[in-house]
């Protein structure tokens, strides 16, 4: 089940082949939903679920899909899965779905999805495609959660909505950094992560 090659498929996207910080895909949503940890985590789980299942479905259909409409078929599969995720969130996590608002729908346009379907699922077996989907989804999610951790901690002084910076600090004059909540700081945080990552993986440097 987990041969050496499959392990590479699953774990590669977590670091050496990370979709966000190495391939620079899916940046848009990484900026939009990372002001708080909770929506970032829900977004990460949603994208992982969608990319894993879309990969499996496309991989199962790969020998039947007419080549001329393969992009359309991929889009239909992704769009259907995203709508299902959106409906489930609206039903069981209404507050989070309000915060994520249009960004759930925009998973459809997340480049990671089309990239994986086109580059991997169309030419691999379902189980490998599933692992690839999980790997890429988690690789995307890790970055989202790291960015959200710093933005929520420094921007709001909370983690998952719980106050972690003690009141005493505020009494001594500490202030939350309002800039962290705004989108530009997500870009800068992602850039810092890329910096650290590249400096530890010399082979990624050009």
């Amino acid at each position: 089940m987990l041969s050496k090659k499959n392990k590479e498929i699953l774990l590669g996207p977590l670091s050496k082949n990370n979709p966000v910080i190495v391939q620079i895909l899916g940046i848009c949503s990484a900026l939009a939903v990372t002001a708080k940890l909770e929506p970032a985590l829900v977004m990460a789980v949603s994208v992982t679920a969608v990319v894993a299942f879309a990969n499996v479905i496309i991989s199962l259909l790969r020998n039947t899909i007419p080549n001329s409409i393969r992009i359309i078929v991929q889009l239909v599969v992704v769009a259907a899965l995203v709508i299902i995720v959106d409906q489930v969130l609206k039903a069981y996590m209404y507050q989070v779905s309000k915060q994520l608002s249009v960004f759930v729908g925009l998973i459809i346009t997340n480049c990671i999805l089309m990239g994986r379907l086109e580059a991997f699922a169309l030419s691999h077996k379902p189980w490998e495609s599933f692992l690839d989907g999980i790997g890429n989804g988690v690789g995307y999610g890790i970055i989202l959660v790291i960015v959200a951790f710093f933005r929520e901690l420094l921007g709001s002084g909370t983690l998952f909505g719980y106050q972690v910076i003690p009141q005493q600090m505020y009494d001594w004059g500490y202030q939350n950094n309002g800039l962290m909540i705004l989108p530009p700081m997500a870009l800068i945080t992602v850039a810092c992560i890329i910096w650290v990552h590249r400096s530890r993986n010399k082979d990624l440097q050009q």
């Binding site: 039947t64 239909v76 299902i84």
Partner: peptide, 26 residues
């Protein structure tokens, strides 16, 4: 599999199945 007839049948089938799944979920 690359012919027009197959493509049209394929898309029609796909659309109907997806529509059923989404209507059911909604």
């Amino acid at each position: 599999k690359q012919g027009n007839t197959y493509t049209i049948i394929y898309t029609s089938g796909m659309v109907i199945i997806v529509a059923f799944i989404l209507a059911f979920a909604a």
